[in-house]
Design a protein around this nucleic acid. Structure first.
Lengths: 344, 344
DNA sequence: ATGAAAGCGCTAACAT
DNA sequence: ATGTTAGCGCTTTCAT
């Protein structure tokens, strides 16, 4: 009880052997009764079940996993607790449970090292596969090439590793959002983007730039600012935009969190949302919907994205038909933060 | 490749034995080099390290776990993805990583069965211990008594199982919040509470009732309504309160989500927040702070709560001094949703 | 400092 | 339908 070493109050831990002895049968009989019920007589089945319950027997999964080389446990790695990723997780989890797998979530915090620690958990047979929602470092992942776990990626794709990917078309979605603003009459539209090491952020910025070019807007009036995906960043970057002359009349934010931050800056400056500055966000997060006014945003079925990713993972694990990539549709949800620009 | 059975493209999977052979040493030497570096010669240490890396050797953790009866992995079970629980998880995770453990999150969805599935993961040696953040069914948990995993509870306590508990004093915190309202001059104060099968919700309701009694307010004018902890519930219950005569002038909500829902109902009815209806929430969630006006709320250090729980868990696992319960302080954060009631 | 051998608790041939 | 046996890949005595 003194040292700092492992010294748990040794639970005697009932083993299969103990149950077998108590019943006067062999371990294999118990094993079969427990996992292949139709291979034993009804009577033994019943006796074993009863005794196992009475003795509070719990299988040692480490032993079973070692023997069967399978865990029926899957990992979902998310980079942060953003509602976007949590919704995706929810979909993935539901599908896995439906198919009889356990799911555990790991949180990389965007740290490549920690991400790899979790990948190793699969290679080390603690789990059967991984749904990787966005990666901290695609290049490093591709380098690991020969020793990658069974994996499906969601949101960001990783080229060259042959992992199925479930995504939305961020470029097209961003373009459509900007086109909506142009349609309203905006000519000076800025982009508040996520960090440039994020593929998703880069794609959204790309779509923004495409639409600006296609619409023939003056690029000098349509700046792209980037930063971390936080409220504070959205607010700071918008504050910077508001000092420009001529001021942009609309902003596409790379997600709803940045959008809300931006809107806070607009409010703080005493400008009118819509009339003075229009804002569009991304991902349709609930707190954007609750904002006053509710944020216009690019929406898609996040739960379904997770579900598809998990279904693809399980299909791979079970050796079923290789599922190919999927791209889910997006749609612009028009709410209260956009209007035609006031006459210049 | 056809059937639906397990049939993964058999990764040859390098074993320790393979590394040993390649080096012409015994498995024990490799094992020692990898986990007890000071028991082998510097030269062997180096050669083994190199070869293991070159062969991309990954230890089979199922085998190691089986042998050592430990996993260095801990589970945190949360009932939902509410920011409250996610913050607690964040604190727990940080502490575990700091102490060299892996953490995985499991999500019970408030379902007692799923909760027990995860508890069994520990009994089945897939993890070393559990931080249980709130439980779906304390009674059932207590019944499992002799076969419970090493566990620490956060938020809700479970009596009679001897698990350390990290919490806040919900009764006192709720009472203090109501006293604040009474201090502002309110005499008709309602409570929008969480489900009565939640201990946390019951405690908050209790604190509410205590304060009403202590303040000598007319109980008939201070109703307690309860429901699920969702925005929609908050809105619906507030709508109901607004039809009462005489109308309450203030509401204590059991958390910020209910509070925001309630505020939405107030807005929709064209009443003034503060002047007509004051609202206090609980938990200091970010989206309450962002609301317009920002929600007055009961705050506490959620991350620290998680950290403490995890520290206590690890201490138990490592057989160190039994950590006792802890109660963290709360404080009322006064923001924009409270004012003195308009003259009646 | 290293090797040989035993065994963690389970499942899966192989017998009977 | 049940029992016997042989490992899964690792760590850890016990020898040397």
């Amino acid at each position: 009880m003194s040292g700092s070493e492992r010294d748990v109050e040794a639970q005697p831990s009932v083993r299969m052997r103990d149950v077998a002895r108590a019943l006067g049968v062999s371990v294999s009989t118990v094993s079969r009764a427990l996992s292949q019920p139709d291979m034993v007589s009804v009577e033994t089945l019943e006796r074993v079940g009863e005794m196992a319950a009475r003795m509070r027997y719990r299988p040692n999964l480490a032993a079973r996993d070692l023997r069967t080389r399978t865990t029926r446990t899957l990992l979902v790695i998310i980079p942060s607790f953003s509602p976007l990723f949590l919704e995706i997780f929810r979909g993935a989890e539901r599908e896995a449970v439906r198919q009889g797998y356990s799911v555990l979530m790991a949180h990389s915090g965007g740290d490549a090292d920690r991400e790899h620690v979790f990948l190793d958990q699969v290679l080390s047979q603690r789990a059967d596969g991984i749904v990787l929602v966005t990666t901290a470092d695609p290049a490093r992942l591709a380098e690991r090439q020969p020793s990658l776990p069974i994996m499906v990626t969601a949101v960001d794709t990783i080229s060259g590793i042959g992992a199925p990917n479930m995504r939305i078309d961020n470029v097209a979605a961003a373009r459509a959002a900007v086109e909506h603003l142009i349609g309203l009459g905006h000519r000076r539209i800025a982009h508040i983007g996520g960090p440039s090491d994020s593929l998703m952020a880069r794609d959204r910025a790309q779509g923004f730039a495409d639409a600006i070019a296609a619409g023939g807007l003056e690029p000098a009036h349509c700046p792209i600012l980037t930063g971390a995906v936080t409220l504070a960043t959205g607010e700071a970057l918008m504050a910077r935009l508001l000092t420009r002359y001529p001021r942009p009349t609309a902003v596409l934010a790379a997600n709803d969190e940045l959008a809300v931050g931006a809107l806070q800056a607009v409010k703080r400056d005493g400008l009118r949302i819509g009339a003075d500055i229009s804002v569009i966000g991304f991902d349709d997060l609930r707190f954007g919907m609750l904002y006053d006014p509710p944020v216009t945003t690019v929406a898609f079925d996040k739960v379904e994205l997770g579900r598809l990713a998990m279904a693809a993972l399980i299909a791979r694990i079970e050796g079923r038909s290789d599922v190919v990539d999927a791209t889910l549709p997006t749609r612009l949800v028009v709410r209260g933060t956009c209007a035609a620009p006031a006459a210049p």
